[in-house]
Amino acid sequence: MDINLGGIVIIVGNYGSGKTEVAVNLSVHQRLAGKEVRIGDLDLVNPYFRTREARKPLADLGIDVVLPPKQYMHADLPILTPEIAGMIRRPSELTLLDAGGDDVGATVLSALTDHLKGKTPHVLQVVNPFRPFTESIEGCLKIRSEIEAASRLLVTGIVGNANLIDDTTAQDIENGAEFVRDLAEKSGLPLVFITAEKSLMPKIDKERIPCPILTIDRQLVPPWKKAGRFSP
């Protein structure tokens, strides 16, 4: 089972669900599979730990990272660079848009409605059941409908991102996979993939995982830790 996504992929989810880490690692995974990849940072609500933190390793792999102008990189201002509209009008093989958290962060997508007209974007909801407000299926469904209302888009698939950062165990991943499988069933949406940090991969019982697994090399780390190195 491998992940194969094309066209416009929009990553949404509740605040702190891990959208950026998923978007960054997904862009690398698809780039290493030979695709032409562009990623746009639409996170207008989070002041730290954004896609822009990983711009160098992504650029080194030939991934085009679209960010607000440099002088506004550390501003807490809702700046949507006009290049994003261009990305949508002329998508590359894979165009990834990393939105901000919750309905508030997804509101920016409604400004792109006109540009998205006639396109069929994948809108993936990232879920981490270890986060507050998405510990239950009801919580995830509530956030989904809030995001759909704010973004004027429909969620088309679920991504499982169960983790407790460094404290994650293989069992957490397996239980998390069961949680998102149930969520996908309840919501009538496909479970597109789940994630697991590289070091956990050998320990995971693959029989219990009903979908592809995206390997995570953690990029959004505090200053005393080293970001993971991407390798084919």
Binding site: G16, F130, R131, P132, N163, L164
Partner: peptide, 14 residues
């Protein structure tokens, strides 16, 4: 049980 929180959220919950 363990959950994953931003410092700001955890301060509110605490």
């Amino acid at each position: 049980k363990k959950i994953l929180m931003k410092g700001n959220e955890a301060i509110g919950e605490a």
